[in-house]
Design a protein around this nucleic acid. Structure first.
Lengths: 126, 126
DNA sequence: TACAATAATGATACAGAGTCTCAAAAACGA
DNA sequence: TCGTTTTTGAGACTCTGTATCATTATTGTA
């Protein structure tokens, strides 16, 4: 379990801070904007390494872009197709999911549960 | 529920056939290759419309690319980070997932459960 | 401290996936 | 049949993300 032992460079630290301070999920470009004067490649590198180390999560959305989040408790995601908002939903069965996959013989590193639809607010507004 | 009522153009039909005939998940570019002489934009358009109509599924992977599959029974996915293979895993709790999301007030159109790790074959091979 | 080796960074060119535009072709309807 | 609408294909374009490489910072060691 390679987790948290690896080195964290100054820039990785800044990225981590940006993400942990943000209440929302950020794209790589948004993080790039937050960190003025920092090279694009450097940000992408930092994001990759932080993902590897399990400190942040990359979420690949339907839209084709990825968003990043600071890792807190395990949870699921809901993406509203109307307003584009991304909601965190408390995880209730992360463990049973893992059991099922393990039963199939695979060993899981990460699970990603995302639902798409119309959120409460958008339904109200219609 | 806008499902299956909409028109299917000749090209959408060919894309649908390609996908239903394939045992594996195909990228847009792979489908493009299967259908020689067909324009790139046309294939992407057909894939979008088939997704909207719920006849096929788009899966947005960690790698940044999307793959498409013909819609059969609900199931989950497992992606091996070693060999890149994508496995279908029988769904066991699609309904309870939907219940949880609904409890949050959102209405779900599609759910996407994908796990990443190392598959059985790759673990054996090590 | 000084010096060499290693790692991190930034600029920029590049690649791949997907989108946009628009004119030509096909299908449709009266 | 003739005009309208839809579908299609070509190609330019955009947007994310990657690769390269020279510069700068960090680290270890004598």
């Amino acid at each position: 379990m390679p987790r948290g032992r690896e080195k964290i460079t100054p820039l990785m630290h800044r990225v981590l801070q940006t993400l942990s301070a943000s209440r929302v999920h950020l794209t790589a470009e948004e993080i790039l904007e937050c960190l003025e004067g920092v090279g694009r490649a450097t940000v992408y590198r930092a994001l990759d390494r932080l993902c590897e180390q399990g400190l942040i999560n990359r979420l690949s959305l339907e839209s084709g872009t990825s968003v990043y989040e600071y890792v807190r408790e395990p949870h699921m995601h809901f993406v509203c197709r109307e307003c584009g908002n991304l909601y965190d939903i408390p995880a209730e069965f992360a463990s049973s999911l893992e059991q099922i996959m393990t039963k199939c013989g695979h060993s899981i590193v990460k699970t990603d549960v995302t639902a798409y639809g119309v959120c409460k607010n958008c339904r109200m507004a219609e």
